[in-house]
């Protein structure tokens, strides 16, 4: 469905040092530098896949999404989405895709969302019967009933996001690019949006690329993740593999009946966190069984769980590693 080969997007930006003298100088002699927002990224995504794009701010995630949706012309490389070259912006291509941006909205501010739906219906040439069906489905799934008749400006952020999603799906796109769709939403609303996206993907076998700062979004939605850092691809595979590679250790979380001293706990693994009545240990995967049986035998354990390290930690470790690798090679 999506093929990206050696994608590069470079910007030439004008650069100057602070201060009045430099500002004056830059009026006449401009210095430019090239920013490599995306620099040689390749991947393939099959129809119906759900893929998470991860990376720190400025990694090139949004730029990649914009190239894929035809908004930006790539500097180099080749991109195909369902056989189309995105930047030529053919009608057939645009009718298949949608881009949802958590930070920008397309709903007409002073009119109820239903009017934007209607406008999009006309733009995409959706037949009235299909439109009614899609809208009633979206209305049920996202609980829009009460919202679509109120002017957009009177809706809360979460309500607006639900309507944004509906507006972006009026034409039943087969490829969804979602750029931080849950940004700024509370946890329960994040769950609603997430569930909805998953159902849409399953119902229409839609291909989906998602960027998000909330690891829960990615963990819940995307069996596969692509990690981009400084414009380069640093991981492409399943989320489990990513965690395995970066943090193969497991977390053993213990809760005790009575106070336990540090020295008693230390013998079972590396202590990440400890109070008198609880401890979290980091244990290599092949040593988990031994550590658990040992702790159960020798400590007053009231409760025990084995967990994977939090995704946030895995990510920051990954970025720290690739940064130090870059510094080492430089």
């Amino acid at each position: 469905m999506i093929t990206v080969r050696d994608l590069a997007k470079h910007y030439r930006v004008h650069e100057r040092a602070p201060g009045m003298a430099n500002a004056l100088r830059s009026l006449f002699h401009r210095k430019y530098k090239t920013v490599r927002a995306v620099d040689g990224v390749s991947f393939e995504i099959g129809a119906g896949e759900r893929v998470g794009f991860l990376g720190p701010n400025g990694a090139g995630k949004t730029t990649t999404l914009k190239v894929l949706s035809g908004l930006l012309h790539p500097t180099g490389g080749e991109v195909r989405v369902d056989g189309h070259i995105p930047q030529t912006r053919e009608r057939a291509f645009l009718e298949k895709i949608t881009l949802v941006m958590g930070q920008k909205q397309q709903l007409i501010w002073d009119l109820p969302p239903a009017e934007t739906f209607e406008l999009n219906r006309a733009i995409y040439g959706v037949s009235p019967a299909d439109f009614r069906e899609t809208i009633s489905e979206l209305t049920t799934l996202l609980e829009l009933e009460e919202l679509v008749k109120k002017p957009t400006r009177e809706l809360s952020l979460g309500e607006r996001m639900k309507c944004e999603l509906a507006a972006a799906l009026v034409h039943r796109p087969r490829v969804l690019f979602l750029d931080e769709p849950t940004i700024g939403l509370d946890v329960s609303m994040q769950v609603v949006i997430r569930d909805f996206i998953k159902r849409y993907n399953e119902r229409w076998n839609a291909t989906l690329i998602l960027t998000s700062h909330y690891m829960d979004d990615v963990a819940a939605l995307c069996p596969r993740v692509i990690v981009i850092d400084k414009g380069k691809l640093s991981f492409d595979g399943s989320l489990t593999d990513l965690v395995q590679r970066i943090r193969p250790e497991k977390r053993v979380v213990l809760r005790f009946d009575r106070a336990v001293s540090a020295s008693e706990v230390e013998m079972f693994g590396k202590v990440v966190e400890r109070t008198e009545l609880s401890a979290t240990l980091q244990v290599a995967q092949d040593a988990v069984r031994e550590a658990v049986s040992g702790a159960l035998a020798r400590l007053p354990v009231a409760d025990l769980t084995v967990e994977s390290p939090p995704l946030e930690e895995v990510m920051s470790e990954l970025f720290a590693r690739s940064r130090s690798e870059r510094e080492a090679s430089a």
Binding site: K66, S69, Q106, Y124
Partner: peptide, 17 residues
């Protein structure tokens, strides 16, 4: 505001829209 993106994503002539 950068919302011209939405206009350009639509399968209709941007100048007309």
């Amino acid at each position: 505001k950068g919302t011209l993106d939405f206009v350009l994503l639509k399968p209709a002539d941007a100048q007309f829209m």
